[in-house]
Amino acid sequence: MRIAGKLGGAVVSLSMVVVLGFFLFRVIPGDPVVSWTRGRPTTPEMQAALRAEWGLDKPLPQQFLDYLGKLLRGDMGTSFTYSRPVLDVISERVGPTLLLVGTSTLIAVLLGLWLGIRGAWRRDSRFDRVSTGVALTLWSTPTFWLGMLLMMATGDLFPSRGMRDTDTAPGFFSQAVDVAHHLVLPSVTLIAVVYAQYQMVMRSSLLEELHASYLTTARAKGLRDDLVRRRHAVPNALLPVLTLVFLHLGLVVAGAITTETVFTWPGLGLLFYEALTGPDYALLQGLMVVTAGAVVVMNVFADLLYRVLDPRVRAA
């Protein structure tokens, strides 16, 4: 029953993404043709032709319905820069981004949770102070700047452009090694900027949990300190953190845009940058709808996962 409600909510959220895409790129700019052709030599006749082609001479509600109908058929318009359907351009770039964001998030979450747990348990120890300080500093660092710095500092140690070299021998293994080699710098950058928030959230969640009286019960039973932590405190503290991991996915996406730009990693983030320099509005619109939609869907998964893991929510 409540799961159905959640799914309904997700559908509402997705429709809001779609509406937002329309609103941002058709309504706010006033006359999209003026902004979409900004910086390109156009004549009034060409603009009128474009207007007719995009259906901008129709009333706004009609435009919205057209936009919606096309979207449902998977038509997000045509990219200026690539002269190809937006959806095709986007789908080519999904793989590299998934690889980069996936590896980085996984490592960042594990690292952040481990540091957070250790820090909270030995609160105010040297370990806690140093790791918190490092985390806060990295959290304050602009991703792209860190990337540029890393690139400069490591020199020729790691490749800093693209995802693979053209001269790599064919065959799965050598290709994989090459990609992994290229992955090092971008993922280190992304991890460094992202892990801190997981650490801070985990740390404060566990600190909060350490006041709980069931931990006194556990100690009274004769449990060793590390068992009290592993069996009782951490599982409870972990639950709220899990949803936050997914909620912060938006920040990872933001980090990916600049990281991919710095390292010319051929994913969605770099595509964002290319669309901006165009500016290629059809592509930007598509990218916004796709990334926002993906994050919304991920959060629904997070919610369902939480429902499975926490018996209190499951029953409610």
């Binding site: 933001a254 964002f272 926002a292």
Partner: peptide
């Protein structure tokens, strides 16, 4: 509902879209 929606949507992506138009 609206707040939760905007909380989930990547803020920077929205900001990019806004400042580009």
């Amino acid at each position: 509902r609206v707040t939760d929606f905007f909380l989930v949507i990547p803020a920077l992506v929205l900001a990019i879209a806004l400042s580009s138009v």
